[in-house]
Design a protein around this nucleic acid. Structure first.
Lengths: 191, 191
DNA sequence: GTCTATAAGAAGATAGAC
DNA sequence: GTCTATCTTCTTATAGAC
């Protein structure tokens, strides 16, 4: 028996925290909210995650692991540079419903935590860096390091901006329109 | 005597709230924080702003008024379409220090409030709409309504994205680089 | 490992003296 | 208009029974 009852409970709490931190924001979510969502009692939650910030760390680490897995899939993609970037953009668009309803999870978390002391912001920022590093490496197969960096940064900027506005207006069409423009830009750049 | 002591106090509270809601976020700011920052007592604050959400409404309305004043200045700008947009972008860049430290005020507020019931988000979203409407009208002096709308939206998207990333990395250079790219885009589009 | 109980403090909001 | 005092609720966190 590799998965104990404790592991299962710990996992439920973590998933509840991830969901609520994303959908309500970190400050606006109480550990009581998390306990209710997970179906455990507050005291029990504290056994697994003694403090709210540790719960945040674990939630962010879980998201980082997901992103790393996604990046691994991207690395296995085949085709031209444009075709690969096109598919990467598609994996962003696939999350449109959530983005419209709650914003980009990494972007909104970075925004919220960035208002604090700055230390809490480090972890979500690393997720951005993971993605940007991968994008830069890919662009570098075609361009100089400097140009590759610029392209990667600009691609990230456009997707984040599209997420902010789509969430502000709660408009999935906006996200589609902007992704179309990003594709046009990608095509110009890659060809 | 047009400015009573009460007005002055009300104003101090409002400015304190605006500062803290921006720098710490709405949820993370207590009305006690606001009272301390304004140098008034909590009970006195409640006399002027009975609830936290009313304080938020007033703070957002004050920001909206500022934006409207800024737009009025933009409307007085002279020169080619590119030159005007170039100056508009400059007024965004002028706030670089704050954007790097705390993000775009409208963007981060919209993000945070958008996680809630959606009703609170309406007010800051209107500020985006104000700006976008003005941009669209300007672009419409040269392009069809549909194209003008697209350009306005894309310009807003790129500035918001640049703000998110610059704040995430706390990097003023990133903002500069992206504004340069936006200018290149503006030049291509306008000429 | 699980749950109850509760501490200790901060939150938003209010009543009423001056 | 200003300030003190207080109420209630919610928050995080902990102690300890089972």
């Amino acid at each position: 028996m590799t998965v104990t009852k404790g592991d299962e409970c710990r996992c439920r709490i973590l998933e509840a925290a991830r969901k609520l931190f994303y959908q309500k924001g970190f400050s606006a979510t109480s550990i009581n909210d998390v306990a209710e969502e997970a179906g455990v009692l507050k005291g029990n939650l504290s056994y697994y995650y003694p403090s709210k910030s540790e719960l945040l760390e674990s939630a962010t680490a879980a998201r980082e692991a997901e992103v790393q897995a996604m990046i691994a899939e991207w690395s296995a993609l085949e085709g031209s540079l444009f075709e690969i970037m096109d598919q990467v953009l598609s994996s962003f668009e696939a999350d449109a419903d959530n983005i419209v309803a709650y914003g980009c999870d990494i972007g909104t978390l970075t925004n919220e935590l960035g208002k604090g002391d700055g230390e809490l912001q480090r972890q979500p920022r690393q997720i951005f860096e993971l993605i940007q590093t991968w994008l830069t490496e890919r662009f570098a197969t075609r361009f100089s390091k400097a140009v590759a960096r610029e392209h990667a940064e600009h691609l990230l900027v456009m997707t984040q901006g599209a997420a902010v506005l789509a969430h502000a207006y709660r408009d999935p069409k906006l996200l589609q329109r902007q992704c179309k423009l990003i594709r046009t830009w990608l095509r110009e750049v890659c060809e």
